[in-house]
Design a protein around this nucleic acid. Structure first.
Length: 662
RNA sequence: GCCCCCCUAGCUCAGUCGGUAGAGCGUUUCCAUGGUAAGGAAAAGGUCACCGGUUCGAUUCCGGUGGGGGGCUCCA
């Protein structure tokens, strides 16, 4: 047997020529794949003289993808074991897990998932080896003739899109066989790979849910049944992941909205239309008040516009041509009909507004504008109505009626760069004031096929946005071709307390509307010029931001936002009068404080306040009353005793003023 | 909009293989006056989402509508 020289993880090495990485890394159990000369390969791959071999650990990003992809194969095998008439779609790894699409005889139910999961456990236990096999298109079509979706993928191979590329390799067509103990294939799947050495390398997995998905992601294609699963390098990591999901469920704003009596969606009103209860109203008002103040400081002017308008306005803006599907249908006013039903006098059509910009444009246009007025910043908490498809409505984060913290900035081209820069700084600082700290930015650029305007304008605006983004020194992600038809945009993505990303603010340059509305200002030389228009919403919508903050804080709002800032709890009824007097002082100091005068025992009152996530409890008993003092109990269970009332007020006031979390 | 699932007291949920229903929490009243996350007792509270169909009889089975959930597609 001859020897070959290779590099293993950067170190020169000499091995027998028939050695495979599986043997080279035999004593490192966490190594489940490798890179040969930079390309991801199975550990069973052949290596040759001069190859550079790098180990891929199961915990690395590549390793996790391979683990999850292999688990998807195991699931597909199990599904076909349990339901033999099921045809296969595709089964890629995704963030935290994997899915596989199936065309079963009937949709899966939860019991099916249990059956599939136990079949998977058996396959994992069997330790089936994954074997890569190169095939030809003709052979594969023959072998997979009973798998129509796979055959379709083979046909697509040349122009393979993203979703197909996991299944069919770029240059070679490969099939992965799962080999039983006797070395014979027990199951096969068209796949690019790579895969784990064997199924026993799957340390921990769980099937999560079944759902429907269109074949190859198109509404026009048939619906397949998708099963989602998750897989991890260890049982502990799986448990931790499931714990995170449970935590996310606990802080779901829809659940907290009920538990904390913040808002509801009465069926009588309609899907996606919320009412805010008194407690939610306080939080919302605190959010709005602070936003208003900051906008005022920043040179915005406040305007108001109606919720309804005649159709002509949205014809002018282009919304009716482009977005009428997303609008509530028109109300027809003052229409007169003949007795035979034909129209005698045409009515007037009114629409609920899906956006505020046309109204702001009318304000801009209401009189001549001078360059001296620019940048003109018009701000409105504008409530809009959009007829979202029934399947997408989701709590406060995707509603049909919502209020944007909307503003439109009209400026000269020369002012655009500075304006965007200061605007982005303003946005980020404001979001930080609300307790969000971790951001990245996304720059959406032109899609040439779906856009209007001059190339030069697009380039200029995109560059201005890019410059503003880069100045923030935050991560910048490019969303190529993701811009709206009328101009490029930056969106601010914020991470919440448990690491989930939410799209918050958008800043959008618009070339279209100033033209459609023929907006003009008088320049220094007396000529009439078209202003640049910038759309921006910092919260996106107040409802959505409310939902995000509720989840971010898990309902435990910082004092400045908390509906009830302090609950006063007498140790016994005898001290209620004393506390009532103290409560008066707190109220006079502008603190939102409630005295719990119910006949519950104090332990119960503490529990209630705790569950309502009230930031402070003010407790007083005999000792406090004698000394004229109070005790403060915090949300974390800590307590400070014998505090002078004025000190307690000062402490809480300062936390509110500084928007501190406690 | 599409696929699947769900809707029982204010909330969270049992239950009825078709004979009109239960628990815990909450609410009300009474007792208890209690120093750090549930004191005790009693009572009230339901057209079993709504509308049709099948049936002697429907909360239960079937169909439709509304609302919700998980996904897909979409998100100006």
């Amino acid at each position: 047997m001859s020897q070959i020289s290779i590099t293993v993880d950067g170190a020169a090495s000499t091995v027998e020529s028939d050695q495979r990485p599986t043997q080279i890394f035999a004593d490192r159990k966490e190594i489940i794949a490798c890179k040969v000369n930079g390309a991801l390969k199975d550990l069973w791959t052949e290596i040759s003289e001069g190859d550079c071999v790098e180990s891929v650990s199961i915990a690395s990003p590549d390793g996790l993808s391979i683990l999850r992809h292999s688990t998807a194969h195991v699931m597909a095998q199990a599904v076909q074991q349990v339901f033999s008439q099921t045809r296969l779609g595709i089964g890629p790894p995704i963030t935290d897990g994997f899915y596989y699409d199936f065309d079963p005889e009937r949709p899966f139910n939860p019991e099916d998932l249990e059956k599939i999961e136990s079949a998977m456990r058996k396959i994992v236990k069997d330790g089936q080896r994954f074997r890569r096999r190169v095939t030809t298109e003709a052979d594969a079509l023959k072998e997979l003739s009973h798998e129509p979706y796979k055959c379709e993928l083979i046909g697509l191979k040349s122009g393979a899109g993203d979703e197909a590329s996991v299944e069919v390799g770029g240059s070679e067509l490969t099939i992965y066989d799962n080999l039983g103990r006797d070395g014979q294939p027990v199951w096969s799947d068209l796949c690019r790979g790579p895969h784990l050495p064997s199924t026993k390398h799957i340390p921990a997995f769980k099937l999560m849910r079944s759902a429907a998905a269109y074949w190859r992601g198109s509404e026009k294609n048939p619906m397949l049944q998708r099963i989602y699963g998750t897989a991890w390098p260890s049982q502990e990591e799986l448990t931790a992941y499931l714990g995170l999901l449970a935590e996310a469920e606990k802080r779901d704003h829809r659940r907290l909205g009920t538990e904390l009596d913040l808002f509801s969606f009465p069926e009588e009103i309609g899907s996606g239309l919320a009412v805010f209860h008194p407690k939610g109203g306080i939080v919302r008002r605190a959010m709005e008040d602070y936003s208003r103040k900051r906008h005022e400081d920043e040179g915005y002017e406040f305007v108001y516009s109606p919720h309804l308008t005649k159709a002509a306005l949205f014809e002018k803006s282009g919304h009716l041509q482009w977005y009428s599907e997303g609008m509530y249908p028109p109300m027809v006013m003052d229409e007169e009909l003949h007795s035979d039903g034909t129209i005698k006098r045409a009515g007037q059509q009114y629409y609920m507004k899906p956006m505020n910009c046309p109204f702001h444009n009318l304000i801009f246009q209401s009189r001549g504008r001078s360059y001296r007025e620019l940048p003109l910043r018009l701000f409105e908490f504008g409530t809009v109505y959009r007829y979202e498809k029934s399947g997408v409505v989701h709590g406060l984060t995707r509603a049909r009626g919502f209020t944007q913290d909307d503003a439109h900035i009209y400026c000269t081209k020369e002012q655009m760069v500075d304006e965007l820069d200061s605007l982005l700084t303003f946005v980020l600082n404001l979001l930080r004031d609300y307790g969000l700290e971790d951001f990245y930015l996304e720059l959406s650029t032109r899609n040439p096929e779906k856009s209007v305007g001059e190339d030069a304008d697009w380039i200029e605006a995109t560059e201005a946005l890019r410059k503003a983004a880069v100045a923030q020194k935050l991560e910048l992600v490019l969303d190529e071709g993701g811009a709206a038809f009328y101009g490029p945009k930056i969106s601010v993505q914020a991470k919440d307390a448990i690491g989930r990303t939410w799209q918050m603010s958008t800043i959008q340059v618009d070339f279209q509307l100033p033209q459609r509305f023929e907006l003009e200002y008088s320049a220094t030389d007396g000529t009439r010029q078209r202003p640049v228009m910038i759309h921006r919403a910092l919260f996106g919508s107040i409802e959505r931001f409310f939902g995000v903050l509720t989840e971010h804080y898990s309902g435990a709002f910082p004092p400045w936002l908390a509906p009830v800032q302090v609950t006063a709890i007498p140790v016994a009824e005898a001290f209620a009068d004393y506390l009532a007097a103290v409560v008066k002082e707190f109220k006079a100091a502008g603190i939102r404080i409630d005295l719990d005068s119910s006949d519950d025992r104090m332990q119960k009152k503490i529990r209630n306040a705790q569950m309502q996530k009230v930031p402070y409890m003010l407790i007083a008993g005999e000792e406090d009353q004698k000394a004229g003092k109070v005790s403060i109990r915090y949300r974390n269970g800590e307590q400070k005793n014998a505090i002078a009332v004025t000190d307690a007020i000062a402490e809480i006031q300062s936390a509110i003023r500084d928007r501190k979390q406690v």
